[in-house]
Design a binder for these strands. Structure first.
Lengths: 129, 129, 129, 129
DNA sequence: GTGGTCTAGACCACT
DNA sequence: GTGGTCTAGACCACG
């Protein structure tokens, strides 16, 4: 379910976070589903439990999962509500810098929007119903 | 004009790269324009020359600037040509991860595309003339 | 009536202790009242008997309840007497740390005292009669 | 500046967090002040750098400090603004449980409010101007 | 069994 | 020098 790129410079724990978020979006993981225990996933990914624990703690802080003492971790209910303006402001510069790169490569507005749309569409879950 | 955010976790040298790229896009810097020497910019930004040098090196590698021995550094001609597939593949996961965040926040496709478009529009240069 | 929050990081057995204490204060439980057996409560709360037993043990140690062999557990007489200095010293740092948080949030003395008073008032039992 | 209680069951990293918050409130630490580096403090407290790092990361998440790459960590500007309702809701049950304890010890409303006020007053900084 | 904390090292990127 | 990440262990409280 989770594939790591060890030679990548993105920290492993962030890759784990990313992929669990991704899996919830794609519908591979539903609210209430149990996710592997820290130790199990650590074994599976050949990383140390501490690394997985760090990922899980961050996921809990972001309310993507909930951990229950002695029971394990579970996908949380998705909470809607107002958009997190603080998070939005942290995303904006990252997005902008990537758009700068695309524009410097010679892409035009329409092509860029098209490209982003295509990437977005890969997140839509046609896979599970 | 370069503004750094020291408390940001984005490396200073990357912020410099980013902003010079941004300035070329916005039309504040044109091909052939001289950019400040490493030492000058370092002084201006209150960073060590090594940091600026690292930024310039990377900019030259990406052919955004050209350095001429004894003369200084200059904005290079923009090269169009084919899209750099390797770069595209490095941008895609970053873009995707940010779209994941936006989607998790509850944004819908249309709103996300709208948001990205707005950010793109800030890159369009009305300022050149 | 006991309500547990499983996703909370407060141990289940402590939540049980807390709520029984709370119920005695609110007048829902009076001295002499029987409280459910370990097994019954365990069943009711969907926890293992060991967890409830641990809570009861601690409650007995604190002389909130009394267990009589073969008869079950009962709310004990409230003992007044001198304030337990040891307990006071254990409460003080917890209280202080929470006041620190409130103050860091920007609350002023009057507002904090007000806030604490409000919480206290929820403990006053209008319900006894 | 920081005193740990190693036999306490409160995690060391939380004690560090607590004390730095306390020191800012008391006026021992001002916005902009540098705090010891992770390694220095670790040495001073005879704990492993990882433990201090964990404390610093949490402090940064709470915007009590700011870390600057390669420079160190600094006390952040205190931000006022609206009260964090989420945090308030996490503080309330802790406060309540302690009030329950005090009430069970036989303290009356006035005495409890008095007690809390006294603890609060120890946070007011008469010490530095 | 679970997650949480901690140690004593190590390596890395950044300044 | 700085903080950030990771390893390979360990011990603990909880259920």
């Amino acid at each position: 379910m989770i594939r790591l790129d060890y030679k990548n410079n993105i920290p492993i724990y962030e890759q784990i976070i990313e992929q669990i978020k991704f899996n919830t979006l794609k519908g591979y993981l539903h609210p209430g589903d149990a996710i592997p225990s820290v130790r199990k996933l650590a074994l599976e990914l050949s990383v140390t439990p501490g690394t997985v624990a760090k990922a899980y703690q961050e996921l809990e802080r972001q309310e993507i999962i909930e951990t229950i003492r002695g029971k394990g971790a579970f996908i949380a209910q998705r909470k809607k509500g107002e958009w997190d303006q603080k998070k939005l402001h942290s995303i904006q510069p990252i997005l902008q810098s990537q758009l700068v790169e695309l524009k410097l490569m010679g892409m035009h507005k329409q092509e860029i929007v098209q490209y982003v749309t295509e990437i977005y569409d890969t997140l839509e879950s046609e896979d599970i119903k």
